[in-house]
Design a binder for these strands. Structure first.
Lengths: 231, 231
DNA sequence: TCTATTATGTATCAATTGATATATTTTGAG
DNA sequence: CTCAAAATATATCAATTGATACATAATAGA
């Protein structure tokens, strides 16, 4: 075999993971590519995004993409993993509280407050001006048209979220155990979040806002919170 | 000019429009192409859908697509127009009632019931097993990533819907005139509909349903209606 | 410093895809 | 029945795009 399949490079990230490891020279490039991919995939979707544009945005060329991620789909999956990691980190506090609330079978008051905090964290992540907005386009799209990352988001983000919210809503309603309707409420709640990202566009136009700043975000968030209040 | 730009065919639908006109032989083909495009664009999105697959599904070849619709984007726009027309027709009754309710400045009770009917019609259109499901993928996608059809949906579907719902919610709350928060509520309500299509997938998996039949749809719809009740 | 490994760039390929020039068939008016 | 217009098919083009063979450069351990 004269083809380049014997002396392979990375492709799969070995031991070094978690907290953005950019020590070796190559890891910096890897990170730049990942960042560029998050933007491009987020803006255009898996199929429509081109590896060339990603490479260009990352200030490199095509081969490194395959060198580090195998192929386009591998890069896309890596983006999904990255998004999940960022989401988990950003909601860590609220999730820990939810775990406690559920384990101690707290009362409706505490459960409701916990759920609100949980949702608020997600809403902030999606509508806030933070750095995580990158992934929301990808998530929303994956929900509209399941692609290579659906399983990743489902298993590690949505399903756990649905379980958590189900228990919390059950506590709020003082149910003995999670009813089908409660579970459905939790599903609708969780799966409505990604579309928030989407609704920004319509909201901005319909409200005739030139931009979405702090004041505008507050109105959106307040309206959403009121919905949660009425759960 | 030896190129085929002198003896052009249709491209733009002249006088004959409205109620599916399939009299002439060509119109049948046109209709088959449109139907196929609704399916393909709905499943894959504007960019990812290929004209070849559309032609194949319509049991024809490439040239007729350009002959009838100019180019891929023209075909996509035609799909959007078709979807708007079908939506309007299907919600005609509920919309007429809303118009009356608004014009006569009915009380909160009547306004709430009108809004529920309006939403129910949309929900049925999206989650029901009717024939209009075809377009929902396109609408949801267009909302997530504005493309050639965003303007069409916005101007002719969403904005009118937002206006209507705003007035109705205002009546429900007995406001003197539409407040910013009311308008935002209307926006969130309208823009949450397209994502219903999307949530089916997650709901089906998380509820461990093998399929979404009548009983399953009822649970989804009931849960949604309860949300509307608590507006 | 030397050299094997890792990393990156150049050039190119093959597949896909939107489009159309051109030829052929079908239709319907007279 | 004739024939011009309308409709459809064949074959092909050029652009885009994912991928990679191959060459070169950078890095780090000895």
């Amino acid at each position: 075999m004269t083809m380049g399949d014997s002396l392979e490079g990375p492709v799969a990230q070995p031991g070094r993971d978690a907290v953005s490891n950019a020590s070796r020279k190559g890891d910096q490039t890897r990170q730049r590519i990942l960042e560029a991919a998050l933007i491009e995939f987020g803006a255009a979707g898996f199929k429509s995004a081109t590896t060339r544009r990603i490479a260009e945005r990352a200030n490199t060329t095509l081969p490194p993409l395959n060198y580090y991620f195998g192929n386009k789909e591998g890069l896309y999956r890596a983006c999904a993993e990255e998004i999940v990691a960022r989401y988990r980190q950003a909601t860590h506090e609220a999730v820990a509280r939810a775990r406690r609330t559920i384990e101690t079978r707290s009362g409706p008051e505490e459960a409701r407050e916990t759920l609100k905090k949980l949702m608020a964290a997600s809403v902030e992540l999606i509508l806030g001006s933070g750095a995580y907005i990158l992934g929301n386009g990808i998530i929303a799209r994956e929900l509209a048209e399941p692609g290579p990352a659906f399983e990743i988001f489902y298993d590690r983000l949505w399903l756990p979220g649905i379980e958590r919210n189900s228990r919390l809503i059950s506590l709020i309603k003082s149910e003995p155990l999670v009813s089908a309707e409660t579970r459905m409420q939790a599903i609708l709640l969780v799966s409505s979040l990604p579309s928030l990202h989407t609704r920004r566009i319509v909201a901005q136009r319909a409200m005739e806002w030139s931009k979405i700043g702090e004041a505008e975000l507050r109105l959106i968030t307040r309206t959403l919170h009121r919905q949660i209040d009425h759960l």
